[in-house]
């Protein structure tokens, strides 16, 4: 699948610059692929490959996107969160940081609160899916760390986001 191949490429780019950035790179809207691939997150685990790094598992998608001023997880993203919850429950040594972001519309403080609510919402769903409290940290960057610095709809859409940032 073309998108899967793309995400594999992005992942290798991510690995290449992992020392400089803590941001997972997955700008492709994850919904469709996630639901198509999350049926077997554990099966790809040949001895060496962490399913997290295996494009076939869907777990390389680590960003959720939102509508303006909304912190509710979109239905299409729920399978993705469920897949990560399952991975975390079967990999209790792994920890993930949930990083909420907002676009720049609204006050900085309001956006900080909104993005915290986005991250906290993902944390809640991961807990429901079997992850443990100790594996999860939720933080907010508000509008302060835009991935896309354009002041337009496309830029804003990319910045309304929660990233799942796994500790190395």
């Amino acid at each position: 699948m073309k998108k899967i191949a793309l995400s594999g490429l992005l992942l290798s780019l991510l690995t290449a610059c992992a020392s400089q950035t803590t941001k997972p790179v997955a700008p492709v809207t994850p919904a469709a692929d996630a639901s198509a691939t999350t049926g077997k997150p554990g099966t790809a685990a040949s001895a060496e490959v962490d399913p997290l790094d295996d494009p076939k598992t869907g777990l390389t998608y680590r960003s959720l996107y939102y509508a303006l001023d909304v912190d509710v997880i979109q239905d299409a993203d729920k399978p993705l969160v469920a897949a990560h919850a399952k991975y975390l429950s079967t990999h209790p040594a792994r920890n993930v940081r949930l990083e909420g972001n907002a676009d720049e519309r609204g006050s900085n403080e309001y956006n900080l609160a909104l993005a915290q609510r986005r991250a906290d919402g993902v944390k809640k769903l991961l807990l429901l899916g079997g992850a443990k409290e100790g594996q999860l940290t939720s933080v907010s960057y508000g509008e302060e760390k835009p991935r896309n610095t354009n002041h337009d709809e496309d830029g804003w859409a990319e910045n309304r986001r929660t990233d799942l940032n796994y500790a190395k």
Partner: peptide, 13 residues
């Protein structure tokens, strides 16, 4: 300077 609030989550405003 001193961090006067640094609890889990966000401390702000």
């Amino acid at each position: 300077r001193k961090a006067v609030a640094s609890f889990n989550g966000s401390n702000s405003a």
